[in-house]
Design a protein around this nucleic acid. Sequence first.
DNA 1: GCCAACGTTGGC
DNA 2: GCCAACGTTGGC
Length: 158
Amino acid sequence: MNYWLLKTEPDTFGIDDLAKAPGRTSGWDGVRNYQARNLLRDAIKLGDRAFIYHSSCPQPGIAGTARVVRAGYPDRTAFAAKDPHFDPGSDPRKPRWFSIDVQFEQRFERLVSLDELRQHANKKLRGMVLLRTGNRLSVSPVDAAHWRFILALSRGVT
DNA sequence: GCCAACGTTGGC
DNA sequence: GCCAACGTTGGC
């Protein structure tokens, strides 16, 4: 089992929207970056777990966790001309973009802010992809040790 | 709104 | 394949 971090803008779709979605489950689609696409298509497996990270908002940080309930499948939003994520270059017979389904797991009692994560960037969270300068990946891997440490942070254990 | 740090595009 | 121009992300 592996761990991931999924970025989203809470104004558009945040952890609370996931919690309220039918079956507490939502497709994670609209990703249009090849590196992130490769993770969605090849690396993320059923049963993997993910942090839900809120970006482009007053309080950027990790808001909670979700579980992968469906592994990579073609991203349908790429095929619909009316969809904001439409990509005429993605052929349904040879899809270019992929999505996964995630199910709400928990909302942290308190947001673990980007600022707080950075305080551990050279210690317990050394090497975390999210904290690398200029990182813009909307899907990134998380080390198991980092996962456990951040869960502890969210509970105020450390 | 600014701007750094990317990724993508397209001419050559 | 190079690289300048352009677009996007995302914190501030």
